Simulated assay, not measured.
Amino acid sequence: MKVGVQLPLHVETADGPAIRRFITEVEELGYDSVWLGDHVVLPETIKDASSYPYLWRFDASIDELFPRKSFIEAASTAAYIAGVSERLEIGVGVFVAPMREPVLLAKQLATIDVLSRGRLIAGLGTGWLREEFDSLGANYAERGARLDEYVEIMRTLWRDEQPVSFDGKFRSFEPLFCEPTPVRKTGVPLWVGGHTPRALKRCARFGDGWQAIELAPDEFGRHASTLDHHIEAQGRAGSDVVKSVATRLSLSPGADVAAAARTVADYAANGCDHLVVYTTPSRSIEENLDRFRTLKSALG
């Protein structure tokens, strides 16, 4: 099982040298990947806090989860990480694709994949924050259908044989060139985020991977089995889809690190191919690095 880490939010992440320091050490520690979240804007007031699908997992309010309402933009940051790393896979878990312009997103992802020499993983999700969609002029009600079509658009634009055209419900374009195309012939790997029945069926249709969030190891295993059933119903093999989960581990000073290591092993035993770890809020990049050093030592 691969193990990656989340670039910490709300600390020094708007600082290039701090990100470089974090990436360099994570790579030296032997982690497999580094991950980013995706928000473009956050409203002053989140009117429907219950729309955040994972709030119940945390002993915190929305304002406590997003204390500074500060996020560096995911695609730009992934491109920066590509330039300051050599080996790490670079993941976004997940792009809220329906609120983005799909042709531009396809171009951005292909470019990052080329600059990183084929190390990008693009998680995709429908999103949950209506106010964010409204600020970008994106249609919130149609976000599921748009995500499905946007995947078709991106994979069309990544074909080796160009020019390409597209005629869909939401977007159409006449023959055009969109180069360079991704390093991998199959395109940038697209991982579908979420564990609702609809998300699992969407992943079975077109996902290269599945990324859950905050599922306990046994829950993850049950959802992975359900996903395999859907994948096989599509005439695909379950092994063709990477199974991943992003989860918070308690790694702060005084925490039971041995218990965290056992949790990692439990995920592997329940069929996880790629674990993404993030930690409880910290005050600095260095504090996050201390926690990831501790975890790596415990994992051996």
Rank of each mutant, 00 (worst) to 15 (best):
G83T: 08
A237L: 02
G144C: 09
S70M: 10
F206M: 14
A78M: 05
K201G: 08
F170Y: 00
A298P: 05
P217H: 04
H195K: 04
L7A: 11
V92W: 12
A298R: 05
A122D: 02
F292C: 14
E25F: 00
Q234E: 00
R222E: 11
C203V: 03
P8S: 13
G187Y: 08
V188T: 10
V264Y: 03
A60C: 03
Q211I: 15
G83E: 06
V277P: 13
L9A: 15
G125Y: 11
F220N: 11
K243S: 01
D167T: 09
F206T: 15
H274Y: 02
P102E: 03
S51W: 08
R57P: 07
A269Q: 10
H223A: 02
T45G: 14
Q211R: 15
W210F: 08
D134V: 05
V41S: 11
R68N: 13
P189A: 02
T13P: 14
S165T: 01
D113E: 10
L249H: 08
S297L: 10
G127S: 09
E64Y: 07
V242W: 13
P197M: 05
E152D: 08
I19S: 00
V241E: 10
R117A: 05
I19F: 11
V96A: 03
V245M: 02
D266Q: 06
Q162C: 08
V264N: 00
Q162D: 01
V277M: 06
F71M: 07
S244N: 00
Y54M: 02
T226K: 09
P281W: 12
G37A: 14
T156M: 07
D240A: 07
R202Y: 13
I112S: 11
G137H: 02
G91S: 01
D113T: 14
L104E: 13
E174N: 13
R222C: 09
L249E: 12
Q162G: 09
W158A: 14
R283A: 12
E27D: 07
E149F: 13
S239N: 12
D167F: 04
H229D: 09
H230T: 01
R184S: 12
T263K: 12
L176N: 09
T45W: 06
F292L: 05
E44F: 11
T111K: 08
G137I: 06
E232H: 03
D160I: 03
L129A: 07
S135P: 08
F166W: 09
A216V: 15
T279H: 04
A204W: 12
A122R: 01
D48E: 06
R222T: 14
F292G: 05
G300Q: 07
V245K: 05
A18K: 13
L42F: 15
R100N: 13
E89Q: 06
F173Y: 03
G93K: 10
S250T: 15
R293D: 04
L176C: 07
S284I: 14
F22N: 00
E25C: 02
R248I: 06
P189L: 02
I72C: 15
D228A: 13
P180K: 10
A74Y: 03
K201Y: 07
R57V: 13
A199E: 10
D266K: 09
L55K: 04
A258W: 06
